[in-house]
Amino acid sequence: MNGHRLAEQFSTFAKQDHAARLGMWGFLGSEVTLFGGLFALYAAYRAMYGHEFVAAVGHNNLAIGTINTLILLTSSFTVALTVWAARAARSKLIAPLLGLTILLGCVFLLLKGIEWSQHFHQGILPGLHYRNREMQEFGAKVFFTLYFIMTGLHAIHVVIGIAVLGWFAVQAGRRLYTPEHHVTLEMATLYWHLVDIVWIFLWPAFYLMRG
């Protein structure tokens, strides 16, 4: 299938592609409000526990967070290039670009895992399991609970994104995407970009805002 077939309810490919894009943007919109709810919690708790949040942000590993930011931005670039490749009739490039994106996603997850295990060793765990002795205030506990929930939900999205891109990499190996028909590939990349955008805001929230 892969969108090459015109479904009976549509009169033209242009309309079908428009519907597909609109549907995907609708889905992304729902993701925006999903993370919006979490950022609302973050902002409200930061308003309650300003100093403790600042201290906790300073405790996080700025180096890993920043490297991960650069990795995800790069992966967004590589995945955007797949659409460029499809449009420029260079479909041979699509599979390698997707592979590179997936690789970057895996490195991101690896670094994230290292960071989490550092936290675990310091007794920083979510909710009632929090054991750290140095930062005992309410604000620190809430901060790290939010940290695990928000980066955890984001990591789940990364994993899903990797799976989706992997599937498309296999499809791309069969040269299914042409300058005219690549809307499904484009939608998969949109999902990956969303994952990147979420991280663009998680990065300052958990690593940068020490002011």
């Binding site: 979510p126 909710g127 009632l128 399991h129």
Partner: peptide, 9 residues
């Protein structure tokens, strides 16, 4: 993992 639990703030 209580982000609303008053026991942890």
């Amino acid at each position: 993992f209580g982000v609303f639990n008053p026991a942890i703030g």
